[in-house]
Amino acid sequence: MTASTVFVPTKGGGPVSTTPVDAVSLEARAAALCTRSIKTTSKRSALHTTIRCIDLTTLEGTDTPGKVASLCQKAVRPDPANPVIPSVAAVCVYPEMVEHAVAAVAGTGVAVASVAGAFPAGMSAPAVRVADIADAVGRGADEIDIVLNRSAFMSGDLGRAHDEIAAAKEACGAAHLKVILETGELGSYDQVRRASMLAMAAGADFIKTSTGKIPKAATHPMVLNMAEAIRDYADQTGVVVGLKGAGGIRTAKQAWHHLVIVGETLGTEWLTPDLFRLGASSLLNDVLMQIQKLDTGRYSGPDYVTVD
């Protein structure tokens, strides 16, 4: 794809356009940013920022109220032994678990996000997906994570893909809408760039890399690519959209390189939970162990963080 694609934002404003992406240079730039050496005070603030931006996630068919309660406790107090450690941004669960999560985090400042809209494939009737979203919102979800209709997008029906997001946004009401592009399925950075612009124009509050259900997920170049799309959208419309990396982010080092990429591309004003999230589960414990290392000077081990 070489030609740029133009979208007209749902909320009005002039048309916005995409730019082609050169894969090799994009990956080289991401790799260069990943050589940033984050030491001492910067490492500590990176680790704390990471925690503050985590959407602590469980999306399993075996999720139970007990599992969710445990996750929520971890979200609110990630390290019971260390009161300085902040809470994460949100917990992310299936709609059926939303009420349990809402109850568990009430009053703590931790938000509840729910996947919805026939997550993760999205291959249900539009009305069913909208109903799923409305249901999750009705159960008390603050944030809704849906998938882009890749079937429509890949078949060239960009209008349908766009309109369904706009409908989802409407169904969200006051809840924030995160649109998952499932970047690993789109085949190229060009397509991701186009999907990013489409989702933002359709009204997404966040664009998100992945469901976490397929292997290729939140790679550094992919996050860089989407950050550049967000910057372009803000330049062209003045509308500020958030970015969520999810899937495959397991180590603190991966996470702080995401912070570097977003910080150097969009500015550090993006590095708050309002505009940046990392969807993860095992990441949190690695971050906690890194903080313990900074605090004690010794390397920590998995027995010194809680498994939730």
Binding site: S37, I38, S42, S45, H48, T49, G263, T268, L271, T272
Partner: peptide, 11 residues
């Protein structure tokens, strides 16, 4: 300060 947000004025 652990509450200092991460910035790109790296240490």
């Amino acid at each position: 300060n652990p509450h200092e947000p991460f910035g790109i004025d790296y240490a």
